[in-house]
Amino acid sequence: MDIAKIDQIIENHNGEESSLIQILLDIQSEYHWLPKEALARVGERLQVPMSRIQQIASFYKAFSLVPKGRHEVHVCVGTACHVRGAQRVLDTVQDITGIGPGETDAELKFSVETVNCLGCCALGPVMEVDGKHHGNIAPSQIASVLNNCE
């Protein structure tokens, strides 16, 4: 963990307390999780109590308090995807990776999350792997997508 990097992120937001969520988002995108030292540093620099940081970090879905896998698999479970079989997509992802939503495997290869809507409703069911959308995905195509992840 590079404290200077955290300081830089805080600087980018002028060290403003109201930018707490924005700062945490930047840290999350840098490290793919919120390391404890980073949170402590943010609390110290912004003069924000740890209880508030902890609440925010656990309140918003974008944050993770544990390290994430190298590949982030998001299965959209928005209504449009739900009525078009998102549950079967999720079941298949679970079968292949061996982990359920919110979990990361022991090798830190995959993290699986459900998301409430990616806004590609016309293409449902949708799965997103490392930021790339796979629309109209059939359960039978999932293995080949995930097998391409190293």
């Binding site: 109590p49 740890m50 209880s51 508030r52 902890q54 609440q55 656990s58 309140f59």
Partner: peptide, 9 residues
């Protein structure tokens, strides 16, 4: 003191 807080939602 903020020794106790809410977590999750």
């Amino acid at each position: 003191k903020h020794a106790v807080g809410f977590v999750d939602r």
